[in-house]
């Protein structure tokens, strides 16, 4: 299956600073792809390179098989995007804004405009000027604008910024609906891990301009977990645990408790091993690890948000 978006060794230097450093990832058809990183990690710069607002220093971006640098028009035709805030003309009405951008594309007629307006449920207010809209409505109008040209790929930069919890939930449901019903691939950047975890199929984690890891969210969250053991005698047990290849970060918590990082499916095996070495196992408590833990671990505790 050919990826909708292929990013290869993308880098951007401004002056002496490397803002994006050798970033590569693929987004597959119909997939919701998360792009996770703290503020200032290079997310926005990367997104701007994906849509041709910034020229990369090196590397390439292909959308639907077209190279963005050499075939800009063919590539960008397949993309709808909101870069940062949904910026539209406040002095025009919602419909005029959509008509304005429709005139910049081929094959977008009045019917299509009505269609996207229905889709984002703005039909009641579409003929009012945008300056009277709430942020949530602007966000939806922004999405309507991005959907006008029937894109294969939707790029959303921090789409939940500034929305209230109800608005965020609504947006999340809407994005899922888009991916399922219209089979659009969606690329979402966020610094909120929880959001990505709820919404995305796969995620790339970026920090200081570099992609640290790209993996399915389920795998990232599920593959390793924190497990708390209550063991006696503890020193012998710690010795034993440290020797196991799949156990990391052994951390003594109290007189008889220890916290380790390990795959959940190895718990039974480890238990047996400990018992056979005459170590008393009093309790095993697997902690459900979130993307947040993984993220903090990878970035070495760098602040989020």
């Amino acid at each position: 299956m050919e990826p909708v978006l292929a990013v290869e060794h993308l880098s951007k230097k401004i002056g002496a600073r490397t803002i994006v450093n050798d970033v590569s990832f693929h987004v597959n058809p119909g997939e919701i792809f998360g792009f996770l990183g703290p503020n200032g990690a290079g997310k926005t710069t990367t997104i701007r390179m994906l849509v041709g607002l910034i020229k990369p220093t090196s590397g390439s971006v292909s959308i639907g098989g077209y190279n963005l640098q050499t075939h800009f028009l063919e590539a960008i035709k397949q993309v709808g995007c909101i870069v940062e805030n949904p910026e539209l003309y406040p002095y025009l009405t919602g419909r005029e804004n959509l008509e304005h951008f429709a005139r910049m594309m081929q094959d977008v007629d009045a019917n299509r405009i009505d269609e996207v307006v229905q889709l984002v449920e703005l039909d009641k207010r579409i003929d009012e000027t945008v300056k009277t809209y709430s942020l949530g409505m602007r966000q939806r109008l922004g999405i309507a604008q991005a959907l006008l040209g029937n894109p294969q790929l939707l790029i959303l930069d921090e789409p939940t910024n500034g929305l209230d919890p109800a608005g965020i939930r609504e947006l999340r449901a809407f994005i899922r609906k888009l991916a399922q019903e219209q089979s659009i691939s969606i690329f979402i950047s966020s610094h909120i891990l929880y959001e990505i975890q709820l919404l995305c199929d796969r995620v790339a984690i970026i920090s200081q301009g570099k992609v640290l890891k790209t993996a399915p969210v389920a795998q990232l969250v599920g593959e390793e977990s924190k497990v708390e053991w209550s063991l006696q005698p503890l020193s012998a047990a710690i010795h034993q645990l440290t020797d196991l290849p799949y156990i990391r970060n052994v951390e003594q918590l109290g007189k008889e408790r220890v916290m380790v990082h390990m795959p959940v499916e190895k718990i039974a095996e480890t238990n047996q091993l400990l018992l056979s070495s005459d170590i008393q196992v009093n309790a095993i408590r697997p902690m459900n690890q979130t993307l947040e833990d993984i993220f903090l671990e990878m970035t070495g505790g760098e602040g989020i948000g």
């Binding site: 701007r48 849509v51 041709g52 607002l53 800009f72 028009l73 063919e74 960008i76 035709k77 993309v79 995007c81 870069v83 940062e84 805030n85 910026e87 539209l88 003309y89 406040p90 951008f101 910049m104 594309m105 081929q106 604008q145 040209g149």
Partner: peptide, 11 residues
């Protein structure tokens, strides 16, 4: 306005 970003990401 920031609308330049929408304007320049059209075909």
């Amino acid at each position: 306005n920031g609308t330049i970003k929408v304007l320049l990401t059209r075909p």
